[in-house]
Amino acid sequence: MSRIMAVAGRELKSLFYSPVAYIVLVLYLLFVGLLFSMLVFIPGELANPQPMFAWNHLILIFIVPFITMSLLAEEYRSGRIEVLRTSPLAEMEIILGKFLGAMGFYCVVIASSVVFVLTLMAFGRPDFHPIFTSYMGLLLMGSMMVAIGVFFSALSEHQILAAMSTCVTLVTLGILVGFVRQLVPTSWFAATQIRHVLGYMAIEPHMANFARGVVDTQNIVYFLTGTCLFLFLTYVVLESRRWR
């Protein structure tokens, strides 16, 4: 565990030493600030931050690839991956360390939105339970997104390629699947089932439940299995480099 934490700490530190972290934070805060001032902060209306959390995935889809693009791709490019492999670290420890490092930074990003909750509290009294579940949802959603990012970072030596692939996958899961679902014609064989599957694959409805203050085991399982699946696939990719 200590070895995992060491990798994670190193990763987190390196993220904060690079300008990427600040660019990501500024982008995130600008977007959430816009959501807050346009949809949440309306004097005379309910002090309800739900829209701010429900639409968070739209910016996270583009931010997470920035966080994860260099995790393994940079190691490949610089050749440090060989050093890591010859160290006493197991592949899984490397992956988990990198994953936790990125998650640490992701937590800092989403924690920065607390400033809007505090602003809301200064002028109203929001219900805290949905806020708590929203952060829980953001954490779970983020873990899946970061796992996807780690996976694509493990696939390529080029950071931009890794970021683009992550972005395309997240846009597909976050936005496109929802649209495609509506386009499935009723005349198709098992159209309802196809729609259900596509609806389940989309990120938005799972996050929307958390943002509303509803905790459903189905949503938790979706994010957790997604995270585990992509971490496992990363492990397979890393491990396969030995014999490929």
Binding site: D127, H129, P130, F132, T133, Y200, R212, G213, V214, V215, D216, T217, Q218, I220, V221, Y222, T225
Partner: peptide, 20 residues
């Protein structure tokens, strides 16, 4: 796992007023 979670899901509405 996902199929089971859809089939036997447990849902808890944590809003104070139980809106949902």
């Amino acid at each position: 796992l996902d199929w089971l979670s859809v089939r036997f899901n447990y849902r808890k509405d944590l809003t104070t007023g139980g809106i949902y």
